[in-house]
């Protein structure tokens, strides 16, 4: 059971290993706090839809399962979007169109199809929680690196002094691609060291 949770954090990490859900990962990681909120929103949708799919999997005919999953996911995403707009207005504005884009985050549909539609509720829940945490962790790490080098802060706390010249490129799309590229490389390197 516990393995279902752990695997999402490292061995089957959705971003670093499966290379899924890249679009929100790259887009909202300009600041650590945005990455964190995006991670939480995605985790919420992931857990809710995985549990729902696991609950109703016997009722859904095989031919329309993808359509069913998509509607379920889109419903939860709309809920998350309105909730953020109602209670965390400024964060919701910063994330912009990337909250509705959770609908097409392949991680969620992928987990529904590969895991939740075949397993029981408890295991699906743990699996979704693990994947969500793994996703959030990478977003926070990526967001922190980009925020630190791009504006000298982490979670809006000043880390590097005033003399630090901001690397504007880190806040730009190019910085996102390159940082994540090296992060994936670092991850593979650590894994290779371990295996030896």
């Amino acid at each position: 059971m516990i393995k279902d949770f752990i695997k999402g954090l490292w061995r089957e990490n959705p971003i670093l290993v499966q290379v899924l859900g890249m679009c929100p990962t790259l887009a909202v990681s300009t600041k650590a706090v945005f990455g964190f909120s995006m991670g939480l929103a995605t985790t919420f949708v992931l857990i809710s839809s995985s549990v729902t799919v696991a609950l109703i999997k016997k009722l859904v005919p095989h031919e329309v399962r993808i359509a069913t999953f998509t509607v379920i996911i889109a419903t939860f995403v709309t809920c998350a979007d309105y909730f953020l707009k109602a209670n965390f207005y400024s964060i919701s504005k910063a994330l912009g169109p990337y909250v509705p884009l959770i609908v097409v985050n392949c991680i969620i549909l992928g987990r529904a199809e590969v895991f939740a539609s075949k397993q029981n509720v408890a295991r699906s829940f743990l699996d979704a929680l693990g994947m969500g945490c793994g996703f959030t962790l990478v977003l926070i790490v990526l967001g922190s690196i980009r925020e630190l080098l791009g504006s000298g802060t982490i979670f809006n706390y000043a880390i590097l002094g005033k003399g630090f010249e901001h690397w504007v490129v880190m806040a730009l799309p190019a910085g996102a691609f390159i940082t994540l590229g090296f992060l994936v490389g670092l991850f593979n390197w650590i894994n290779q060291k371990w295996q030896r």
Partner: peptide
């Protein structure tokens, strides 16, 4: 290419350079 960067890693870094070029 260094073994760790093969695949996704290298592709992302190239995409970064392309993004810079497109800017």
């Amino acid at each position: 290419i260094p073994k760790a960067l093969q695949g996704a890693g290298m592709t992302l870094i190239i995409a970064g350079l392309l993004a810079l070029a497109f800017m």
